[in-house]
Design a protein around this nucleic acid. Sequence first.
DNA 1: CAAATTAAATAGTGATCGCTATAATAAGGC
DNA 2: GCCTTATTATAGCGATCACTATTTAATTTG
Lengths: 212, 212
Amino acid sequence: MGEPIRKRGRPRVLDRDIGLDIAARLFWERGYEGTSTADLTRAMGINPPTLYSTFGSKEELYRQALEFSIARENSRRSEILQSDLAILDALRLFLYDIADGDTQPDKPRGCMVSTAVLQHAEENAAVARMTAALREASMQTLKTRFDRAVELGELPVETDTDTLARFYGAIIQGMSAQACDGACNVRLKRLVDIALTAWPGGRPTPTTASVE
Amino acid sequence: MGEPIRKRGRPRVLDRDIGLDIAARLFWERGYEGTSTADLTRAMGINPPTLYSTFGSKEELYRQALEFSIARENSRRSEILQSDLAILDALRLFLYDIADGDTQPDKPRGCMVSTAVLQHAEENAAVARMTAALREASMQTLKTRFDRAVELGELPVETDTDTLARFYGAIIQGMSAQACDGACNVRLKRLVDIALTAWPGGRPTPTTASVE
DNA sequence: CAAATTAAATAGTGATCGCTATAATAAGGC
DNA sequence: GCCTTATTATAGCGATCACTATTTAATTTG
């Protein structure tokens, strides 16, 4: 769609989205501090000035790459949460999807957000605050769904939905950490199955995670 | 005890254990990649050659600082696990102790091991493997205690103790991550209370974590 | 064609990285 | 006091850090 309107001037050699994809992959694998601008320009096949004219700075590139990656995952996951599935089924699918994301073949292990920039040099405090805010927002999304479950009578009215959301947030962060350490998909889903038995008022039959 | 036998030669200006304590604190707060040798020498009040003659290298210093810190925590925690408390009480105290460690006043947030060096530059792969091995060993310790619980009849014989240990390992990692993001002690203990309701065969009354 | 426009490539900047060769210093042994 | 020993301080190594001033190249416009 949309004619590829030829702008005048020397044509760009790097597609912006392709660059973001490459950057996301590097940051994902090596972290913010572990990825150098030389790593980034080499992987993109560009020279430093192109990186800075296209993305602004290393920090700005990180922001954009995170945003780019999150956009790809979020639609599917929020669809799961906003579906009319029973809350426990939706939660299971949601957590399984995260387990899948943590263990994709030919992609870095773990999650780009869950375990990123926890410890950091002072000069990178702004980047750390940003990733922490993304984690907080992710847990608030869970809490919102749990609050709806209370309204729908799927959860006791006295449920502490905030703590419950942070509990599953902790599981998500633990899965990411263990994926970084090499845990396989099935192993992560077994964690999910146990975590779901902590659901208030119910002890669901664990569905053995035996399929990818 | 032991006479402070004056060795000949110029006296050391830095006590080794004090240096390790300072290093541990810095690495704990900023991570391995986020802490520079200049940070370390400045904090210890020494010049670079003293750091290298005393500790060998940045990587070797990190190993020693980790070992030093773990030794301080491990005795108390392994005492809890090896006590004759009922497994569930022991596990609760164990996890509460970790929540306390994650939120000590005047100390960096989170755990030095649980969420360290997950993403990293290739050149630091050896450091990452070491910290991952420490995390694995910590989960194996839990599993060993759970296996004993099976023998003692505190757990059903069909219990998957390995997955159970990794589940509580995930909680420990999630707590460390959330502590890094600013979670307080009580909030972490609420996570523990929920996690304990996932214990096989039982749904213990949660003890509200209202005291420090 | 030439002019205008846009982005690329070259070749760096000063600062910091982990680390070290060398020399100065502070103690005990004699 | 002087020698030996052990540890310190000075100064700086080459490499890499994030980033940029300047020049060159590739396109559309007229």
